[in-house]
């Protein structure tokens, strides 16, 4: 039950893009078409969950025992960058079809602040076990996918209408995202927040 509430909370109430402002770059950059944004979303779910698993293990078994928590930022970013490279190589060798679908998104994910942001955030949450962290991260990444797919749908519709010249592109996208964030605020009393 705890986990159900946590998952709903992460996807709808504390949506990573629309409420926490993480991962805005891919959210604005890779949301032209529903298909590509879905691909991006799946890649993010995969990498983010894996990254948090590895970084939580490092945090709990290396950094905390050795009192090196001040190296957290530097360690995590290097681990994530290396992890993304490794995933890319492994995918290329083992599953070319999956690589073709997700490959182009992988390099973009290294600089996606959502991955590092969530990896750091879960280490700062009191009383989170590694399982808690992984569930939290997976749910958060699903929230990212949901937001980017809905947003891509809206942008596909927006291509069909005439938009004043100054508002075209980024400005109208941001304002649309604002209205979408407002809609997501409707979920805010759904579950106690995490």
């Amino acid at each position: 039950m705890e986990y159900v509430l946590m998952i709903i909370g992460c996807i709808f109430v504390n949506n990573i893009v629309l409420a926490q402002f993480l991962g805005i770059c891919p959210f604005l950059g890779v949301s032209n078409k529903i298909n590509t944004s879905f691909g991006m979303g799946v890649a993010v779910i995969f990498v983010m969950t894996l990254a948090t698993l590895v970084t939580s293990l490092i945090q709990n078994y290396v950094l905390i025992p050795m009192d090196l928590t001040f190296l957290k930022t530097i360690t995590f970013i290097l681990v994530i960058a290396a992890l993304v490279q490794m995933v890319e190589i492994v995918l290329k060798k083992t599953s070319p079809s999956l690589y073709q679908a997700l490959g182009i998104f992988l390099p973009l994910i290294t600089t996606n602040c959502a991955v590092l942001g969530v990896a750091i955030a879960v280490t700062e949450k009191a009383g989170f076990t590694i399982l808690d962290s992984v569930v939290y991260t997976a749910a958060t990444a699903i929230g990212f996918t949901l937001a980017i797919v809905i947003f891509a749908g809206l942008r596909e519709q927006m291509d069909l209408v005439k938009i004043p010249k100054g508002m075209q592109g980024v400005p109208i996208s941001l304002i649309t995202a604002g209205i979408l964030a407002m809609a997501f605020m409707g979920f805010s009393n759904l579950v106690p927040s995490f």
Partner: peptide
């Protein structure tokens, strides 16, 4: 709140472009 951030930034960028 969150929506305000998106909307303010959107209008500011539009203004700069104008």
């Amino acid at each position: 709140l969150a929506p305000g951030a998106f909307i303010v930034l959107g209008f500011l960028i539009a203004l700069v472009r104008y």
